[in-house]
Amino acid sequence: MPVTARLAERAGAIGLFGAALFNEPLIAAFNGAVAGIPALFLYVFGVWALLIALLAGLMIRAPAPPPDAVEPRDGEPRDGEPRNGDARSGGG
C-alpha cells in the first residue's frame, strides 16, 4: 500500500512540524501585539491554519483510492463473507 504509506509519512511530517512550532522555544518567542492583536494569538492560529491547509492539500491531492466508497458498510467482499445486506434495512 505505497500510497497510504506515503500519505502517512507526509502527514506525520506535518505533525512533527506542527509539534515543533507549537512548543517552546518557538512559541514563547511571540510577545507583544500586532495591530492590537497579541502576536501569540496570531502565531498559534496562523500556524494551526497553515497545518490544516497543508493537510487538506495533501489529502485532496493524493491519488484517488479504490472506489469502495459508495455503499456504506461494504464490509468484507473479499472472501465471500456476508455483505451485511441488512445493515440498512436493520435501521427499521
Binding site: A8, G15, G18, F22, V44, W48, I52
Partner: peptide, 29 residues
C-alpha cells in the same frame, strides 16, 4: 491560551497517528 492544547493535540494526533488510524480502521472492518 492554556485551553488550546486540548485542540492542538488532536490536530497533531491525526497527523502523527495517521498510519495507526488507517491500520485500526482496516482491522476493525
Amino acid at each position: 491560551l492554556g485551553f488550546l492544547p486540548i485542540y492542538l493535540g488532536p490536530t497533531l494526533g491525526f497527523c502523527l497517528g495517521w498510519m495507526a488510524f488507517r491500520k485500526i480502521l482496516a482491522v476493525a472492518k
